[in-house]
Amino acid sequence: MLVKTELTHDGFPLKYAYTNASRQECIVLAMPFGLRIELADAFFRFYQPHYDIVSWESRLILDPPGLETSLDNFAVENHVKDLVTVLRACQVSRAILVGYCSGAGIALAAASRFPKLVSTLILVHGEYVLLDDESCTTQFAEDMDRLLSVAAKSEGHARQVFEKVNSERPLTNNNLPKGIDMPFTKLHYLHRHAMNYLAYKAIDFRGLAQSITHRSLLLTGNKDAQVNVESTREIHKLMRNAEIYVDINADHYGILREDSKTLAVLWNYLTAQQS
């Protein structure tokens, strides 16, 4: 994994990672908001013997304090343009696009806005913010919506949420990948993450799903406490050329773990498409 920084179209530094093997096919991983690129290491290791891999850190959230930001900076359209910026920097004209968690929403938006950039679309444990449907919403999602909606209002409100979350959060959880809670570890991270969430949840992901004609795979799991199977089924039924895979034992984090079943399912799907 090689790591570089490129300026976005609107002048912000954007950290991205890539392999440099010049293979024929490339996989682009759209990571969840507010995670360090190093969390994609297992994904890179698994696929780079056979593909070029590209990923990036979402804009602004993990930048140093003191940077002036607004809700407009976090518009989904800007995240999509960041993807295009990274692909150009890596000289990739067409790729398999894998979106994970909130990255699935960005992947949907990118495939809709720039369909020729995407050869195959894969959405893994997608967060589609279907808060209007109880069957598509987990308790975790409801709690996060409430907390982040407050934290987005101001730095003062973000401080209240930050103190509450950190007073209630367990000190360790060995079942979670290290660094998965990065947006909640610093006050300015949380405030930006919350503003970003407001911009993200304003998008009509059902409408985006209906616009997709790419060959697609959607993965979900029965043990995912963040996003549930029904939300993925809802998006899947709106897509015209999509398969769905439900793993009865999968939680939310398989794509970040070494040699996981999630990584193997993606591999098997891509191999079958080539045959």
Rank of each mutant, 00 (worst) to 15 (best):
F44I: 02
G179D: 07
T185E: 14
K116D: 15
L39R: 07
M31F: 08
V80D: 09
L130Q: 13
L266F: 00
A17P: 10
A40G: 11
V246K: 02
Y18G: 07
Q273S: 09
Q210M: 05
S216L: 01
D133E: 07
L39W: 03
V161H: 13
P49D: 03
W267P: 02
R113F: 05
Q273I: 08
T172W: 10
P65C: 05
V98F: 05
A110I: 14
G254E: 04
T185C: 09
V227K: 04
P115Y: 15
L14Y: 15
L123C: 12
P49W: 09
L117R: 08
F140A: 06
I53W: 07
F46K: 07
K4W: 06
R45E: 12
Q274N: 06
L123A: 14
A141N: 08
V76K: 01
N173T: 15
L217R: 11
R59S: 11
D133H: 05
E25W: 03
D82G: 05
G156R: 15
F12Y: 15
N196I: 12
L108K: 00
T5S: 15
G34W: 09
K223I: 00
D247K: 02
G126M: 11
V161A: 11
N73H: 15
S149F: 09
A104P: 05
A202W: 04
T19D: 12
S58G: 14
V161Y: 14
E142M: 08
V28H: 04
C90G: 06
Y128C: 04
I244G: 09
P49I: 08
F74G: 06
L131Y: 14
K201E: 03
L270S: 04
V165Y: 13
K186M: 12
L29R: 00
S22N: 13
T137A: 02
T120Q: 13
Y189S: 12
P177S: 10
A30T: 05
L176Y: 10
H50L: 01
H157N: 14
G105H: 05
L147Q: 15
Y128N: 02
F205T: 02
V80H: 12
S211A: 07
A75H: 08
P49Q: 03
L7G: 11
R215H: 11
I53S: 07
T138Y: 03
N222H: 08
Y18A: 12
I27T: 04
E77R: 01
V118I: 13
L97D: 06
D72N: 06
I37M: 12
K116P: 01
Q160D: 12
E127L: 07
D72K: 08
L39M: 13
D52S: 02
P65V: 11
P170S: 14
C136L: 03
R146F: 11
Y269G: 02
S260R: 02
L263V: 04
Y253T: 09
S119H: 10
C90P: 00
Y245C: 03
R206F: 00
P64M: 06
A199F: 06
E25M: 07
I180A: 11
E243D: 10
L238H: 00
N228V: 01
G126D: 11
C90S: 10
N268L: 11
Y47M: 01
